[in-house]
Design a protein around this nucleic acid. Structure first.
Lengths: 227, 227
DNA sequence: CATCCCCACTGGTCAGACCTTTCTTGTTCT
DNA sequence: AGAACAAGAAAGGTCTGACCAGTGGGGATG
């Protein structure tokens, strides 16, 4: 039920039916429209609020979140709970670790793991095509985690799990700007192709590009260690 | 309220109070424990479920999500308790992370930090001259930790702490063979010189060489990710 | 001894009530 | 007329209690 509501509201948002900044119907009204209880509706709205797709203000209403436009200084501020590490630190670290993880994965990846990655990519494509931002974010993370596992270095694999948690702790998934939701699909495709060809340099290169662009998409400025 | 509950449950998960795969208290029980209504609790749990931190199964219960089991779906329980890493994995990871940390440190290191590093190097020299193997190992680690801190990336700094622990837990201090005890002193000197000159490429290069040779000195074969 | 069914759990959903905050609106006082 | 204030409508926030729907264990039955 809640999942259904989640899907339907996401559909409303991406259909452009509601413009950014525009208020959604009141919870009571919306619950009636969707034929669900207010409790179920609220669970869905809470999730969307946490993910940053909508903004909920007591006494005022619920509003479609302004798109994460490049007007920097604001997009990052949403990282309100991530006290420990800044987004820049996380992306900087990913820029260091993940290309190497990809290079190692290119050497050691098995056919079974490649199949898993391809399966993930297919689901990722489907989710992107339907603009299902929640699923894309989850599948994106899974892709990177799979590669970390394929690297054969458990330190890298566990580590990915760690900063996955860090991002989750900040309660803000790396949702891309809607207009750029298709970019990571292409980038993942390139990485996967390099892995399939067992090409360490290529995998590392495309991974580096991918992480850099991912940081850009969420409006984070990162200093590349360049090592 | 919901936000508070979210924080508290996340705190439980982080603290390791609940191990992966272990069930959480039932919603009715948990709601009572946390002094909130089940509705509010459910909103928080729904969010955590969506984010993948917990797995909610109707009729069965709510469970702490297991860390990524990506590979074979078999070796899941393997590192549920206390992950162990081989020295090869640790050195491979250091080979990835530390050159980048050194490059960043070269950019951001302050005069005060350089002074600390120089002091460490002097003590390191003295310990090496006296063949004090325990002190050299400790000072060696401290040198690397200082550099991680200088990088300005707390993720790198905390990480160093982590695998320092891993190495200590394995009771396997990187003690050099007596005949080669002086080598790391020279290598540290080169790194420090690059840092003092604010030369990122040089610092990264000498660090890479240093880690590689360190692995060799303790007889570990490492595959360089080469990325 | 094996089978089956019941019941006590779990999470999922619902309805309605009450609270707090916000903003409008209409009144009142200056 | 204008400003200040007060009341109320409407929004989201929370709570209570109930019922629905799967799950699984253990006792009754053959």
């Amino acid at each position: 039920m809640t999942q259904t509501v989640l899907q339907r509201i996401q559909a409303m948002l991406r259909s452009g039916e509601l413009a950014p900044g525009q208020p959604l119907p009141s919870q009571r009204r919306l619950a009636e429209d969707l034929q669900v209880s207010r409790a179920s509706l609220r669970e869905a709205l809470s999730i969307l609020g946490t993910l940053g797709l909508i903004r909920i203000e007591q006494g005022r209403g619920t509003f479609v979140a302004a798109p994460a436009n490049g007007s920097d200084g604001e997009a990052v501020g949403a990282w309100r709970y991530g006290a420990r590490y800044t987004p820049a630190e996380v992306y900087q670290f990913r820029l260091i670790a993940e290309p190497s993880a990809a290079a190692l994965a290119a050497r050691y990846v098995t056919d079974g793991q490649l199949e898993q990655l391809e399966q993930n990519l297919r689901a990722f494509k489907a989710a992107a095509r339907e603009m299902d931002l929640v699923s894309t974010a989850q599948l994106d993370f899974e892709f990177h985690e799979l590669i970390a596992v394929c690297s054969g270095n458990r330190l890298l694999a566990d580590l990915h799990h760690t900063y996955h948690r860090i991002v989750l702790d900040s309660q803000r998934l790396p949702l891309a700007r809607r207009s750029r939701v298709w970019e990571p699909v292409v980038e993942h495709e390139r990485i996967l192709k390099a892995l399939a060809m067992h090409d360490p340099e290529g995998a590392a290169y495309y991974m580096r590009v991918h992480i850099g662009r991912a940081a850009d998409r969420v409006g984070v400025e990162v200093v590349d260690a360049g090592a």
